[in-house]
Design a protein around this nucleic acid. Structure first.
Lengths: 143, 143
DNA sequence: CCTTGACCTTCCATCGACTGGAACCCCCAT
DNA sequence: ATGGGGGTTCCAGTCGATGGAAGGTCAAGG
């Protein structure tokens, strides 16, 4: 299988697949012409990676999960720990985003949004009180 | 005021303040020794930026918001649009993260997390069905 | 046999929003 | 003069790709 076949089957772009080889997540063979020759096992790994990434696991988490997946003697506790740590991160991000949403929704609601200059959004940004709390450490910032 | 004073008052690290000057968000004066000399107006802008960033606005949004803040003849509609677009982004991210949370919570719940190798988390990642939907476009990915 | 076009390859740069660190300058107190 | 705590610049790195340039390969059609 060439790269565009695996791309189609795994749903990952060719660029991403090359990148995953670069960082050592997969090790496809090579044809005599230099083309990558993907085995079924490579395909499966890529599909695995795609799903793990879709769940928001970091690349390093993916690397660890892939190793555990391959290791038939793994302890499910190891997988469990990675996943529940990640779940905790996600929960924190949701909380952060919800706080932003509350504040923003309130401001947006209060702003007339017409041709006049009066704007509670700018007033609030100028004076403070975006929320009660500090900007939290686990930073949820724009994509 | 020197940089560490403004840092203390605005809550932004000196590095970030220099960066904001670099990208043209603020234009502090300079003392004869080359030190940045911050006026009150610079301080206010930095505080404004800190709050806008805490609400998750991108730097480019912040630039636009700052310009509108300075413009006493602005139309609140412009501010409103930026904020409500951003609010929509946040809502999408929350939805994505909640979908991840559901799936992950289920998997974590199903995994024994002991010394045995059997692990529904890995099984699921290996076989698919992370959720009903495609990984959405507005990618929420790890920090 | 030659060309065309769709593949494939590598390598380098860019995105966002900082952050770390090196190397160096400045100012004040001892 | 020396030490320590400011400040300055500039370069590299983070994370996870993605865009693009420059060039090699292959199969089909004329």
């Amino acid at each position: 299988m060439n790269i565009s076949d695996v791309a189609a089957k795994s749903g990952l772009p060719p660029k991403t697949i090359r990148y995953y080889e670069d960082i050592g997540l997969i090790k496809p063979l090579r044809d005599s012409n230099g083309y990558r020759a993907f085995r079924d096992s490579d395909m499966h790994k890529l599909a695995f990676l795609g799903r793990a990434r879709a769940l928001g696991f970091t690349i390093e988490d993916c690397r660890a999960l892939l190793a555990l997946w391959e290791d038939k003697a793994r302890a499910s506790a190891d997988v469990h720990r990675i996943a529940s740590d990640h779940l905790a991160q996600i929960k924190m991000k949701i909380a952060d985003l919800q706080a932003m949403r509350e504040t923003l929704a309130h401001l947006v609601h209060c702003c007339a949004g017409d041709e006049r200059p009066d704007c509670p959004i700018l007033t609030s940004l100028g004076q403070g009180q975006t929320s009660g709390k500090e900007p939290s450490r686990h930073a949820v910032r724009p994509a």
